[in-house]
Write a protein that binds this DNA or RNA. Structure first.
Lengths: 110, 110
DNA sequence: TTTATATATTGCAATATTACGATTAAAAGA
DNA sequence: TCTTTTAATCGTAATATTGCAATATATAAA
């Protein structure tokens, strides 16, 4: 039905999947990579750097913001976007845990 | 248009986003967590462990398999699913990189 | 105040995803 | 062979996502 049964899963599972899902699009990966590359935080010139129209990028930025992966500071007419470390820490800690569990039980599987 | 413009992004961005996207659903997070919990690899009793119907889980497993995050070994009538470490290594290495870049440029941002 | 600039929002078309009942396929056992 | 068991596939309904043109909004500059 196109509708995820969120109520059937834990809050942690839902929260994690929302953050991870926000990175499940090449444009949003590209936005994050761009924000990492320019070493101060960057404004709307993300639009110039990506091959998508301004409204599309604005929408992607909104999703990244909702997921807690990006912050936006208004500065006059423009907006300064930058990475929200807290979100990335949460994701990283999940994958770190997966990795260490896999290390422990090395070779038990297929 | 509901269609991602993959051709406008790098192969790495596309591949990473496909793997990450596969984890962008609470059921698929739950499947991975389940596979980590049972310390030998587990078969179709994932269906018993999750609050979704068998065809739905089969579909989620297929997506995880396509993304290279899970492997399935046929064993008679049943199938033994387990985590594909290689996929998780790739994802982890992305988030490790993000983390270390963020460490370097501590406090430059918003 | 008018104008220019930068972003966000709206509305919509095309496509993708989620979920599951019904069915099929494939191997094991009677 | 027939039956049972397990998992995949098909078909379909409901909903979500992607992308952009057009438009709105908001601040700065003239």
């Amino acid at each position: 039905m196109g509708v995820t049964k969120s109520d059937k899963f834990t809050q942690e599972q839902n929260e994690l999947s929302i953050m991870v899902k926000a990175l499940g699009h090449p444009a949003r990966i590209a936005i994050i990579e761009h924000l990492l590359k320019v070493n101060s935080c960057i404004c709307g010139d993300i639009v110039g750097a990506l091959p998508l129209a301004q409204p599309t990028i604005s929408q992607h930025l909104k999703e990244l913001k909702n997921a807690g992966l990006v912050k936006g500071d208004v500065e006059g007419t423009s907006v300064c976007y930058c990475i929200d470390e807290k979100g990335f820490e949460k994701i990283k800690s999940f994958f770190d845990t997966v990795h260490s569990i896999l290390q422990e039980k090395k070779d038990e599987c297929c």
